[in-house]
Design a protein around this nucleic acid. Structure first.
Length: 918
RNA sequence: GGGCAGUUAGCUCAGCGGUAGAGCGGCUCGUUUACACCGAGUUGGUCGGGGGUUCGAUUCCCUCACUGCCCA
């Protein structure tokens, strides 16, 4: 083994091991290796956008998956972590279109046309796609890259079409003219989930309309959208509203477009119970073409629908000459001005309301009536039940209620998008006659469900096979919502519809790790698709991560500039540091406030680990010798017991997906218990003359380090691999058991009863070591109180109440950095004014040469005494309480009595010492 | 309007019925042969307000306030 360099240099080491792991095929999941002794474990990655770059959110998400995958390998499982990317229809298309516009190449995608534009998108994808994959590798992700998938791969696309065809033929997919969320910038429909509500401050405009039957009498209407007045086809009041009941059935005159003749401006006054009394004046203008609720009212009362807007959000001819061609927001102020000129505007007051925004384009969406494809969700019952029954578990569990709520309020899914980048809808429309003619024109046999007359009478064929008669058959121009492909991810990536070995072995997957923001978009839909196409749940456990925020709790965003580049952090601190830092600060079920300090802490910890291992290496000696129980010191037994505890702690935390707890336990165990106490104490034996004791101490150190490295490996794969080899722990192991890589070293098991018995590990040992450490703490306290620098050698005296072995003395002396530790009998009287502290082994004195400051010592003792007196008061108050003594369980009362005795004896002792001063 | 989280030391959080904890920060001392990306010591809190249950509440229940998120 070569000597470890003085400092840990992550870059070279990370590259070296990642390349090594790849060339050893260490990440590949092979179904043929699965057996009863080697169960399957699988995760599918939430596919990032193909043109995206790594964010801290990805770091969190993928580190968790990597920890799960790596630990599963160490537990002897055959692991498949299946990676890939998503074509991200609207996101990618928007970016490419914007870039082309910026460069001046086009004004709109129509300038290029479908085919040319798609070429550009593919070019973009080839150029920027895969960046994120390279970045995931930098992070150390142990994905099986030989199976990388893309949602627009030919095989994957076929899965998408197949599912569409199937659902069409089952009658679950239909086309209809419905109110949808329209994005005027992307010029496409969006699903409800792609719309985010934002509070907006606008104005509420009160304007008057004249009642046609009662000239001179007016009704006042309040609206936030005066520009849609030309699209109004009624006004509505609540039939139970006494102010207006007598008006129902009469008409008002719509003020805009002002140039229209009176008879075209007549609007009926309706009674509809959905109208709120309290909002505005209680009179509602009804615009069925531009408001969801109004559309419903329109249906109830058979109102005409007047669409006054173009797809890009400008007003059309029906809006009247004043508004035509104007953008919807410009149109608003023009409409207001118009109303003012007509003397109809009563007032304008500030108003707060929620407006739906397009998630991607970040502009207000427009409710719009249009022809779209919808899906009635399949396998709803099974999907709801699998979570309700606990067969599929959510972590944290509270998300299952959110899921349940959504599943109980399902709205049909609008799956068509007026985009080009995506899976084209496999539907063709027939322009050449009736049903029989259509069948004949197709030229091949299809099931009868494949040809259907749509709501509007159009004859449509849906199938995988493309009609050859292109003159009479025209394909639908739309593509499918991106999520209509990603909801198939867990099985479409595994070769479905073939019953591949992969699918049979690794489906259902074990764990899914994702953000709660896509619980509806993705998780719920995958569950439904899983049941519909495999008859089974797609994953057994779902872990919902928190959202990464900055240290002020704000969401990470490009515009705020508060989103650090993970690659910069890796370059600065190393991948392991980033992973560990993020994991340590990401508790289950809570958002993560990111602070670079966390990564720094991870880096510091890597350095600590590195140096602790260097220390071992510098001691030389045989690697991993057998521990001889005869030579074990109290501290040896103590650290073995602490290790045992850490193993259980970490394993238990990981079993429950409490990653930050696991990281915290490891940190504490290694830094405080192992480095600060054990290593320092072990120097007594390591620097001692007894060769056998020295060898045995090294064996204990090797035992602990070899276990610790394995516990750390899922969190910090690179440095642990380097140290595993650097210390030679792989030497005598079979290749598949850690000989080749720590990746395959078995996950540490709790040491067990036999181990405890064989090495004589008893609770008393732990207690005794702790008592010694208390002596050390007391001594360091004295040193501090009397301003004796920690590097100055001094002598301590202990009046020991129990015999201290030579070992005990050596260890205490070493940890105190003392010149000597004298033992005196209880009868010994220290020089007057000698600083004294109480310890479990008796009084510890720090004899000071030269002047003794009696007052200082008296004050110090006084403070100590006050503290104890306060504790005593508290305990005594409790014990004096009759109801406590009679009501509390006996053991609790006994514990309090004991506490009282302990405090009392300490108090007496200190008071005696203090009184001896004067 | 409905729902879900959260409110504990300057900051980030753990504890979730029986003596208030960690890390970071602050302060003091220290280059003692693994580590100054370090070591030692130390300073920080009527556990959001108010009620209730209990012998006992930071912990359980109710209520209010504030913060954040989700769904209307």
């Amino acid at each position: 083994m070569s000597e470890l360099p003085k400092t840990y240099e992550p870059q070279a080491i990370e590259e070296k091991w990642y390349a090594q792991w790849l060339s050893n095929h260490s990440f590949e999941g092979r179904p043929e290796r699965v057996s009863a002794n080697r169960p399957a474990y699988s995760i599918v990655i939430p596919p990032p956008n193909v043109t995206g770059v790594l964010t801290l959110g990805h770091v969190l998400n993928n580190t968790i998956q990597d920890i799960l995958a790596r630990r599963a390998r160490m537990l002897g499982k055959e692991v498949l972590w299946l990676p890939g990317t998503d074509h991200a229809g609207i996101a990618t298309q928007t970016v490419v279109e914007r870039t082309l516009k910026k460069s001046g190449a086009i004004r709109h995608r129509d300038d290029l046309g479908r085919e040319k534009f798609l070429e550009k998108v593919w070019e973009w994808k080839d150029k920027h796609g895969g960046i994120i994959i390279q970045q995931l590798k930098k992070l150390g992700a142990s994905c099986d890259w030989s199976r990388e998938r893309f949602t627009m791969d030919p095989e994957y696309s076929e899965c998408v079409q197949r599912v569409f065809v199937d659902l069409f033929q089952k009658g679950a997919i239909y086309r209809g003219k419905r109110m949808v969320n329209w994005c005027p910038v992307s010029r496409t429909a969006l699903s409800d989930e792609e719309v985010v509500m934002k509070p907006q401050s606008g104005a509420l405009y009160h304007f008057r309309v004249e009642i046609a039957e009662r000239p001179g009498q007016f009704l006042t209407i309040a609206t936030t959208r005066p520009e849609t007045i030309p699209g109004d086809t009624a006004v509505a009041v609540n039939p139970n509203d006494p102010r207006y009941t007598d008006l129902i059935g009469l008409h008002v005159l719509r003020p805009l477009p002002a140039e229209q003749p009176r008879e075209q401006r007549l609007l009926p006054i309706l009674g509809d119970t959905h109208v709120e009394f309290g909002f505005g004046t209680g009179v509602l203008k009804v615009t069925p073409a531009h408001d969801k609720a109004d559309f419903e009212i329109g249906i109830r009362h058979s109102l005409p629908v007047v669409d006054i807007m173009n797809p890009d959000g400008t007003m059309n001819a029906l809006a009247g000459s004043d508004l035509q061609g104007k953008d919807r927001f410009d149109a608003r102020s023009i409409a207001v001005q118009k109303l003012t000129e007509l003397g109809l505007l009563e007032k304008e007051e500030p108003h707060q309301n929620n407006v739906g925004f397009s998630e991607r384009a970040d502009v207000p969406i427009e409710p719009r009536l249009s022809q779209q494809w919808f899906l009635k969700y399949p396998s709803v019952e099974a999907s709801r039940e699998v979570v309700r029954s606990g067969q599929m578990r959510f972590f944290p569990d509270r998300w299952s209620r959110v899921y349940e709520h959504w599943m109980n309020n399902l709205q049909d899914w609008c799956i068509s998008r007026q985009l080009w980048w995506g899976h084209r809808i496999p539907v063709w429309y027939f322009h050449g006659g009736d049903h029989a003619a259509a069948c004949q024109s197709l030229g091949f046999e299809v099931p009868s469900e494949a040809i259907r007359q749509l709501e509007d009478g159009t004859l449509a064929y849906c199938g995988l096979r493309v009609p050859s008669d292109t003159t009479h058959w025209e394909q639908d121009g739309d593509v499918l919502d991106t999520w209509f492909s990603s909801w198939l991810w867990p099985f479409a990536t595994m070769g479905w519809p073939e019953k591949t070995q992969t699918l049979q072995t690794f489906y259902p997957t074990t764990d899914l790790v994702t953000g709660p923001d896509i619980i509806f978009f993705w998780v719920a839909r995958m569950i439904m698709a899983g049941f519909e196409y495999l008859g089974e749940l797609p994953f057994r456990n779902v872990y919902f991560t928190g959202i990464i925020r900055d240290k002020q709790g704000r969401k990470m965003s490009k515009s705020l500039g508060n989103s650090p580049d993970p690659l910069d952090l890796i370059a600065k601190f190393g991948a392991d540091a980033l992973r560990f830092g993020v994991m340590r600060s990401a508790p289950l079920g809570q958002d993560v406030l990111f602070d670079e300090k966390n990564v720094e802490l991870g880096r510091n910890f890597c350095t600590k680990l590195w140096n602790a291992c260097r220390f071992r290496q510098m001691q030389g000696g045989e690697v991993e010798a057998e521990i001889q129980s005869a030579f074990l010191s109290t501290e040896d037994k103590w650290i073995l017991l602490r290790l045992d505890h850490a193993i259980s702690d970490v394993s238990c935390a990981l079993d429950e997906y409490r990653f930050s707890d696991a990281a915290q336990s490891l940190y504490r165990f290694f830094w405080s218990e192992y480095c600060d106490w054990y290593v320092e104490a072990s120097k007594a034996a390591l620097n001692g003359a007894d060769a056998a004791r020295r060898e045995n101490t090294l064996a204990v150190i090797d035992f602990v380090l070899a276990h610790a490295l394995r516990l750390f490996h899922p969190f910090m794969p690179f440095i642990t691999e380097e140290l595993w080899h650097g210390l030679g722990y792989q030497q005598d192991l079979p290749p598949e058991q850690g000989g080749e890589s720590i990746m395959r070293a078995p996950w540490p098991k709790p040491l067990g009863a036999d181990f405890h018995a064989h090495y004589g590990l008893l609770p008393e040992d732990e207690a005794r070591a702790n008592s010694k450490f208390e002596v050390v703490l007391a001594g360091r306290g004295l040193r501090r109180d009397f301003n004796i620098p920690s590097n100055k050698k001094v002598s301590f005296v202990i009046q020991s109440t129990s015999p201290l072995s030579e070992d005990d003395r050596n260890v205490i002396q070493l940890l105190l950095n003392a010149e000597a530790l004298q033992i005196e009998p209880l009868s010994w009287i220290p020089p007057r004014g000698t600083p004294t502290a109480l310890t479990p082994f008796g009084q510890l004195h720090l004899p000071l040469e030269g002047l003794v400051d009696m007052d200082a010592e008296r004050d110090r003792l006084g403070k100590e005494i006050t503290k104890i007196e306060q504790e005593l008061l508290k305990v005594r108050a409790k014990l004096a309480n009759e109801t406590f003594v009679s009501g509390a369980p006996a053991n609790v009362v006994a514990e309090h009595r004991q506490r009282e005795t302990d405090w009392q004896s300490k108090l007496t002792e200190l008071q005696r010492i203090q009184s001896a001063l004067s």
